[in-house]
Amino acid sequence: MKRLKIFPKTFLYTLGLMVFMNVMAHTLFYLLTPPVSFTAKEYTNDPVLTAVTLNLSDYIAGIIRSVLPISMLICFIVSVLCSLLFSRAMTRPIRRISAETAQMETLDRNARCIVQSDDEIGALANNVNRLYHSLLKTIENLEIEKIKVSESEKSKVDFLRMASHELKTPVTALNAMLENMMLGVGKYKDHEVYLPKCKRMMEQLAEMIKNVLDTSNLSVLVRDEATADIYLPAFLTELCEPFQIIAKAKGIRFELDVTEGVTVHLPPELFGKALNNLVSNAVSYTQRGHSVMVYCDADHLVIENECDPIPEEHLKELFKPFYRPEYERGRDTGGNGLGLYIVDSILNALRISYTFTPTPSKKGMAFSLQIKK
Rank of each mutant, 00 (worst) to 15 (best):
C75M: 15
I77L: 15
R109E: 13
Y59A: 02
L85Q: 09
I94Y: 06
I70N: 04
A89T: 08
R92W: 08
S71R: 03
L68R: 10
I74L: 14
M104C: 05
R95H: 12
I74Y: 05
L68V: 04
V78G: 09
S71M: 13
L107N: 12
F86V: 09
G62F: 01
L107I: 11
I97C: 09
I77M: 15
T91I: 00
A61N: 06
S83Y: 02
C82I: 14
R95C: 07
I64H: 06
A61F: 04
A102H: 12
Q103Y: 04
T91M: 00
I60F: 00
E105Y: 12
F76C: 07
I97G: 08
E105L: 13
I64G: 06
V78C: 14
S71A: 14
T106S: 15
A61Q: 05
S79Y: 03
A89N: 10
C75R: 13
L68Y: 08
I94H: 03
S71D: 07
A99R: 15
M72V: 03
T101N: 06
R95Y: 13
V67D: 04
D108S: 13
Q103L: 14
C75L: 15
E100Y: 03
C82M: 15
V78A: 15
L85P: 00
L85D: 05
E100A: 10
A89Q: 11
T91R: 02
I74D: 05
I64D: 07
I70R: 05
V78M: 14
S87T: 01
M90F: 12
I70L: 13
R109I: 09
T106N: 14
